[in-house]
Design a protein around this nucleic acid. Structure first.
Lengths: 346, 346
DNA sequence: TTGAAAGCGATACCAT
DNA sequence: ATGGTATCGCTTTCAA
């Protein structure tokens, strides 16, 4: 569809100028006389001239579009990340094109293919749970596409990275539970090939270690799809609750896993926090409205999006210059609520 | 950025063919000999040829992109709508470009400007609360851009429309509350210039009328920004609770308004459902985890997105053909939970 | 300061 | 069946 009103050629013909002159006048080039510039601008305004961005992109080899790849849009955490990204992108005149992988590497590849065929200027990506390496990203990186990883990082590319303090968060959360006297803390998390998972496990282990306690490895459960499928979370919980010694606490690694766990516990009649306590990395926007109010490790989602976008755009606009890959680790915040405190009644 | 490997010209040169022949071979045109086709395809595959979609769009005047305009992405209802849209768009090979208005008409105009300069093939839009008419959409419509409205409709354009049964939903919800014995039902909703608001008010009034009861108009509150600003919801509630006769029930018109109301009631120490009952149009994905579990009028968000996308793509692909504007009204579903039932615990 | 012309990559009409 | 060429809308180098 072409919603174009008039083109540069139309203006040129109407004013008896050459295409190039019109183009220059429109761009505000300095090598142009005032009267001509004004005449062109006036005519353009009057006839509602709008440049064809496609043509510009084709010619300039840049599109002022940023590609965004993430697992799913309807997600309280990622939704805020998107807003953070858009806030800086739109202020800098970039359009963000969002694509979802639904945790499939196949979809991730397709999304990248699609986006790059449309000449995006840069890429922001949080990889899918199936993604184990950056092989599929290398060709783009080699051709000079600026890439910034956020949230779910994948090692292997010298690019900027923006993530949460996963280790510190898991440490604090685990410590909080240990401090409350819980000893059998189940950790429901994503596949272990994800750096994020490893970091959180490290935090979890460190908390136990510093408390001088041993870890029962059977309490560590990975969900292959990062909790995208409710059944996998339920399976993990089924397994946990049929252990000779079931857990007394659950630490979930994401919004989805937290919510599925919550629903599972509710359905199976386990009382929170009396029978079992629950806490999770989660960015629900009203965890206090839950019953019981939910203890959460909150990530600064908006800030994550903002920082990632700033880094990316800075790279896009300084393509020639070399840069040192930066790794930004954003602090997380523990909000203790009723779901992890027996002595507090909501 | 150009992530292009090789172009048609490269292939043509390498194989000593003309551009046109290569183009035809790539497109699978029938008027081409087998050996040539194969040679071209083989070379293309080997050298990872990827068409430049920008160039194709410029030439073909279509982009296989759909523009999507809505108020905000991080929203349980709209998030699902987006998924519905993407499910059909991606299966038909369209890329969805999402833009947010944050309830500002100004942003809406900018988004439209941006999108159309990039030659989208069609537009899906749920207008902002500030949007009172379709004046800003007319130029695009007149130039032949296929448009489909969903959710927040704006009258005045002969296009397809997909929305929920707002009147029926409000009627049922109000009736449910009246049936429970509540008589002073406050309705917190969006500005009245929105069709959706009018429809819901109509449903509300019809329920009262059929029950043979009179309505206290002071119980009807509009939030200028549709609840996007927490303060406006709180102001509305403040006003309601300082009435000589405060409401005994609250009917909120959206996720945001429902949640803000919930938080307000919690904060001001009003017990639900003992002191006041609360119900709302809302698509929270786990309303039963709230405390108390929330009575909701659930819209079929995914289906709404799907239908809207189907209608739009059908119009895009049959541009020449005339069509009769269709108005699809999707049924909504009342889920009664504890927040509107005094006699039921949790 | 302005214009002519080439070219971005792909397509399609007109020839042959 | 294949090739030449103009074109989509815009930018930019080179000349004038």
């Amino acid at each position: 569809m072409n919603i174009q009103s008039i083109t540069i050629k139309d203006i040129a013909k109407a004013l008896n100028l050459s295409y190039s002159t019109v183009s220059r006048a429109l761009k505000g080039s300095y090598q142009i006389s005032e009267p001509v510039r004004e005449k062109v601008l006036a005519y353009a305004r009057e006839h509602k001239y709008r440049p064809n961005l496609l043509a510009q992109s084709l010619k300039n080899k840049n599109s002022r579009c940023i590609g965004l790849v993430l697992c799913t849009i309807p997600n309280s955490f990622l939704g805020e990340v998107i807003n953070g990204i858009e806030s800086v992108a739109s202020s800098k005149g970039y359009l963000v094109i969002i694509t979802q992988t639904n945790e499939s590497l196949e979809n991730e590849k397709k999304a990248l293919d699609h986006l790059t065929m449309r000449a995006i200027d840069g890429l922001l990506i949080s990889v899918s749970t199936e993604t184990r390496d950056v092989k599929h990203l290398e060709p783009y990186h080699e051709r000079g596409l600026p890439i910034v990883f956020f949230d779910r990082i994948c090692e292997g590319l010298p690019t900027h990275i923006v993530q949460s303090d996963n280790e510190g968060g898991a440490f604090e959360l685990t410590k909080h539970l240990l401090d409350q006297g819980y000893r059998r803390i189940a950790h429901i998390t994503s596949p272990t090939h994800l750096a994020m998972t490893q970091e959180r496990l490290t935090g979890y282990r460190r908390a136990y270690k510093e408390a001088g306690l041993a870890i029962d490895e059977t309490l560590l459960k990975q969900c292959a799809h990062g909790g995208a499928i409710v059944a996998e979370v339920e399976q993990a919980l089924d397994a946990l609750f049929t252990l000779p010694q079931p857990p007394d606490a659950i630490l979930a690694a994401s919004d989805r896993m937290t919510q599925s766990s919550f629903q599972y516990l509710r359905r199976t009649g386990k009382k929170i926090p009396e029978d079992i306590v629950l806490a999770g990395f989660s960015n629900f926007n009203a965890p206090e409205l839950f019953s019981p109010a939910l203890t959460t490790m909150v990530q600064d989602a908006f800030e994550m999006g903002k920082r990632a976008a700033i880094l990316l755009i800075e790279r896009i606009e300084n393509k020639h210059k070399s840069f040192t890959p930066e790794k930004i680790v954003l602090p997380v915040q523990l909000h203790v609520r009723a779901s992890t405190q027996q002595n507090i009644t909501q």
